[in-house]
Design a protein around this nucleic acid. Structure first.
Lengths: 249, 249
DNA sequence: ATGAATTTGTACGTATGTATA
DNA sequence: TTATACATACGTACAAATTCA
């Protein structure tokens, strides 16, 4: 056990965190190469396997990119998904909650049967609170999204008495349970508006829209929340910037 | 080298693909556990390290989740096709390019005029090489994507003599210029297939699809590459996994 | 409640392949 | 061609979480 590391958490995570820290501190500036794996091995006094696991962490969230024969380049500082998830522009789907309001129209108790259970990726028979409504950007008259939510009964209480939602629901769930949402599985597909939805959104039937589903999983893999958003193309575009460095650098 | 595997691509990817295939075929149904790592080792006749790398691949795109002492559970089978894509980082684009092949059908020199220049966000009159073709997952017969690319004339040379593209184009651009792509602006919208495109993709006219555009900008803000992908909903779903912490915790 | 068996997670060593400069 | 640096792949061992007798 190298002296600068402890046994409290895996070595590769400690090293990954140290590397991220150094990137944030501009010890490894954006656009430069990290020390080679061999150098990191001798610097940290661990095996190459462990160094590679640490670097894998950074690759996974886009912080660095490796190229054979060249090295591992720093792309960006800090890439916490929780920041991305909230703090983006109004046109970024990652951030609904801060600039928009969800006005519920219906709220009922349901049992997940065949199709919906399959769609959620769970076994049939589990109880959920289903709530749905229109989502508006603050200060605008036209809704830009039809929003449906299934909340596991163990956390359904957070929606009680809520008619207008102004915060991220999954965040409320985290506060309620005291447990972090471990992962969010998000999926996007194209759809056409049904007559019913078109009416609610005040658009022609058959208009093109994006359908985004999100599955919020606990650390034990339990589905706590399932959300479906239908976003008409005329009122929304999904834009993201991938792993940009600092502007102008 | 186990007899059922070749050396064309890494063993762990071949195994990952086989596992995904079996999940799609309901050999490993949703909600059940995969065979244990030890069983997969003897089934595939590779080391445990290789098996774990294959499973890591499935974990990364959310297909499975593993728990110590329990096993690796199947989460989702994703659309009957091998169609997952994490759109979060440059690294995801590398993976995407490695698993698929782009077969060019046309290649011409063009000048960006009114509409397309506006779409690209540049001034009119700049010269580009335009190339377009169908993209296939390796080993599959049906294309899953119509792929168009505009390459700035300063880097157009990288496409010369290339009929089948197996690497990330922007990566080749980076190697060619020695300069890093600073940011990638991505946009997604729903569309319906035109008769022309439907013919190429062998799908009914009017089928729903995702249209994804990407603008690759140099560090000085110059547009070096503009790519448009039309992805039929039946063959592709856009999926992202936002994970809070580290695997296994 | 305890302990053994099972299963994934972490970590080390070593060797060879492949892309790049 | 040679050297460099990351990528893949084998082996081994022990730790940690879970399950079950």
């Amino acid at each position: 056990m190298p002296p600068h590391l402890d046994r409290a958490s895996p070595l590769y995570l400690q090293i990954a965190h140290k590397l991220e820290q150094r990137i944030r501190d501009d010890i490894y500036p954006i656009g430069t190469l990290l020390p080679t794996e061999a150098e990191l091995v001798s610097a940290f006094q661990v095996s190459r396997y462990t160094v590679r696991q640490a670097i894998d962490q950074l690759k996974r969230n886009g912080t660095v990119t490796a190229r054979k024969g060249v090295g591992t380049m720093v792309n960006t500082k800090g890439n916490d998904w929780r920041t991305r998830f909230r703090g983006q522009s109004r046109h970024d789907l990652f951030d609904f909650s801060r600039d928009s309001e969800l006005h519920f129209q219906t709220k009922t108790e349901v049992i997940a049967r065949q199709e919906i259970a399959h769609e959620m990726g769970i076994t049939t028979g589990r109880a959920f609170t289903y709530a749905a409504g229109l989502r508006y950007f603050k200060g605008e008259d036209l809704p830009f999204c039809w929003n449906e939510v299934y909340l596991d009964e163990s956390v359904a209480e957070v929606l009680q008495g809520v008619d207008v939602l102004r915060k991220a629901l999954f965040h409320m769930v985290e506060s309620y349970t005291g447990e972090r949402i471990a992962s969010i599985h998000q999926e996007l597909s194209p759809v056409q508006l049904t007559a019913d939805l078109a009416g609610k959104l005040m658009l022609p039937t058959g208009s093109l829209a994006l359908r985004m589903t999100r599955r919020y999983l606990s650390s034990r893999g339990r589905l706590l929340e399932y959300a479906i958003q239908t976003l008409p193309a005329e009122r929304f575009s999904y834009r993201t910037v991938l792993s940009a460095g600092e502007p102008g650098t």
